[in-house]
Design a protein around this nucleic acid. Structure first.
Lengths: 273, 273
DNA sequence: CGCCCTTTTTGGTCTACACCAAAAGAGGCG
DNA sequence: CGCCTCTTTTGGTGTAGACCAAAAAGGGCG
């Protein structure tokens, strides 16, 4: 785990660039005391950038100066600059595109697991532009854990859809859906780059009467991180949905790995008992 | 942002220590391909430690070797070691106690926002030991945003409870609860180190008929991070609950900041329309 | 035993540098 | 104009070393 270190010069600085200064539409943090304590340097820098975003100097989607640019401006080491950027990334204020740069995050969409309206519907409702890519569609034998969920025999072939969904051109989630061909024969022949919900309801007449949703904050594992173009370990949200029909059969089993800054979950429900 | 750098020697290495090697009870990650690609060094180290935890060489709650110890063992620079540890932290496998060390995370508790059972109840149900500390109880005038939620006039005095809750002695969430004294007069006179739910139901006869829950992954802001003893920016989950009585009045408005590795949300619901 | 004080250990922060691979940009060419 | 190639820029990773403050451990003392 050691490596040689021959001589070499540092790269020159980026020339100054013109940057947009439009309005931002950032959401307010909930009722909480301000946090402007000036402890470590990286937090001070974080505050400075955050202020810039909140004050609208940097529009959603616009590019931040490069790390080396920040370095020249602030005099801090690159490690410190990056620490500040990671902080902002964890807060959902900014995100990065590998070897391209850091960008201001667009607002998150609200997701209501109670409504069985699909991604396409509720993203569009919020004035954003949803797209879906099907990465793969395979008929795979069910491993024991999956067979158990579908109440079928292990080894039964089930559809495995692998999809990536984007909002305004930015990949926000990668999902793996499992559907039983017994309920939706020939599913793979349809275009799955749209609403699966619509196909299952409209074409196969499958009505979902129960929805089971599991959520937990997680780090994006390698396969999800790669598909979303982020570094493995980036915080995310894992949403596992199981849709159940009137006869108790599982219509759809879905694992969604979301970018943590792209989603906000809202549940509104009656309490019984 | 510059600092002087006089001469000084490095500290000596930690002497080797005896470490426990009991069984661990880690949860399985959901159905996903393995991720054992050996790209960067820090990921290789991450895999090594993760394997140790999963194989049960390190029990939940036990202490990992110190960073400098890892350094000596692996020959990598401390920065690289830390990168691997951050990774595991983001995944919820380990956590740190400031200037004390890194520890293996205990399993997360499952939280069901549909049941209006309080923290004390469901944590106990899962065989864990819940505790609550009241950090402050104040009667504060409602700012406009809060007054709007309670459908009252801005400036109306409302109870502001600040509590910290722990599982098996480890602080997992800090919350801020707002209650209208009109519904629960003299609330502050009761011991709030237990179940608030029980007090509101048992003593004040308040029945909750609707629950509105908002969740979103977030970074822990300073006040929450301080209360939980973590670094600001650590990933967390913000859960905002609004409990509504039959007459439509808001019984309780609650903002909970959770450690991301301590919670797992489960919703099971009927779908209408 | 419990309390206080000192020393050691440990993570937290920071600097300075270096090399790499992917992305983006700049030209050249058909 | 589109396609290809070469160069520059940018983040990703890694090393080596240093200082700091909080936590933990140890020791002395009443």
């Amino acid at each position: 785990m050691a490596r040689p270190s021959p001589m070499r010069l540092t790269r020159p600085q980026t020339p100054s660039k013109l940057r947009s200064a439009m309005r931002s539409q950032l959401e307010l943090t909930p009722i909480a005391k301000g946090d402007t304590a000036d402890g470590p340097h990286y937090l001070a820098l974080r505050d400075k950038i955050a202020r810039g975003i909140e004050l609208g100097k940097l529009a959603a989607g616009s590019k931040l100066p490069s790390e080396r640019q920040f370095q020249g401006d602030s005099g801090a080491a690159r490690g410190t600059i990056r620490e500040a950027l990671f902080q902002l990334e964890a807060e959902g204020l900014i995100y990065r595109r590998d070897r391209s740069g850091w960008y201001v995050s667009p607002p998150a969409v609200t997701y209501n697991p109670m409504r069985w309206a699909g991604f396409m519907t509720y993203v569009a409702e919020q004035g954003r532009s949803p797209t879906t890519e099907t990465l793969s569609t395979e008929l795979e034998p069910a491993p024991p854990a999956v067979a158990d969920i579908f109440r079928t025999a292990p080894g039964t072939p089930l559809y495995n859809l692998h999809r990536r969904r984007s909002i305004d051109g930015r990949a926000v989630l990668v999902e793996r859906i499992i559907v039983d061909p017994a309920l939706a024969p020939g599913l793979a022949e349809h275009s799955l780059d749209g609403s699966l919900t619509q196909i299952l309801t409209g074409i196969y007449g499958l009505t979902v009467v129960r929805n089971r949703v599991d959520m937990r904050p997680c780090a994006l594992v390698k396969f999800a991180a790669d598909a979303l173009g982020v570094k493995p370990g980036t915080p995310g949200l894992l949403v596992v949905r199981t849709s159940i029909a009137a006869d108790g059969r599982v219509v759809e089993y879905d694992q969604e790995y979301w970018r943590h800054d792209a989603i906000r979950v809202h549940v509104d429900l009656d309490v019984r008992g």
